Simulated scan of single mutants.
Amino acid sequence: MNNLTAGQQPNLTCAKCGITLTLGKVTLSYLGSSFPVELFKCAKCGLVYIPEELANGKMKQVEAALEDK
């Protein structure tokens, strides 16, 4: 669960580069559909952090909707 209050940002570090992740625009793709979102990513290598809540929540719903088509 997310214990951050409104306006707080998590202190996330890239596992590959060791630098702090920053919020930026990312394009997620699945089954030929693309979705622009803002997520934390590494400015050096591009690694993107997808929070568990997003992966198990909204992304799972979108996945199910696309597979049903």
Rank of each mutant, 00 (worst) to 15 (best):
M1F: 05
N2R: 05
N2P: 02
N3S: 05
L4Q: 08
T5F: 00
T5Y: 00
T5E: 02
A6C: 02
A6G: 07
A6M: 02
A6D: 00
G7E: 00
P10H: 09
P10W: 01
T13Y: 10
T13W: 09
T13V: 15
C14K: 13
C14E: 05
A15G: 14
A15K: 14
A15Q: 14
K16V: 08
K16R: 15
C17Y: 03
C17G: 09
G18P: 01
G18R: 05
I19L: 03
L21W: 03
L21H: 10
T22H: 08
L23M: 08
L23K: 14
L23R: 14
G24W: 03
G24L: 04
K25C: 01
K25F: 01
K25D: 06
K25E: 04
V26T: 13
V26F: 05
T27W: 05
T27E: 04
L28C: 08
L28K: 14
S29M: 03
Y30M: 06
G32A: 06
S33W: 07
S34V: 05
F35Y: 15
P36Q: 07
V37H: 08
E38T: 14
L39A: 14
F40C: 07
F40P: 10
F40Q: 12
F40R: 13
K41W: 00
K41D: 02
K41G: 08
C42T: 02
C42Y: 01
A43Q: 04
A43M: 02
A43Y: 01
K44E: 00
K44D: 03
G46V: 01
L47R: 15
V48I: 15
Y49M: 12
Y49D: 13
Y49S: 15
I50K: 15
I50R: 12
P51K: 09
P51L: 00
E52M: 09
E53A: 12
E53V: 06
E53H: 11
L54S: 10
A55Y: 06
N56I: 09
G57T: 10
G57Q: 07
G57V: 05
K58E: 09
M59I: 15
M59E: 06
M59C: 13
M59A: 15
M59K: 13
K60W: 05
K60D: 08
Q61R: 07
Q61I: 02
Q61W: 00
V62K: 11
V62T: 12
V62G: 10
A65E: 05
A65V: 07
A65N: 08
L66Y: 11
E67G: 14
E67D: 10
E67M: 14
E67S: 15
D68V: 08
D68Q: 13
K69E: 04
K69C: 11
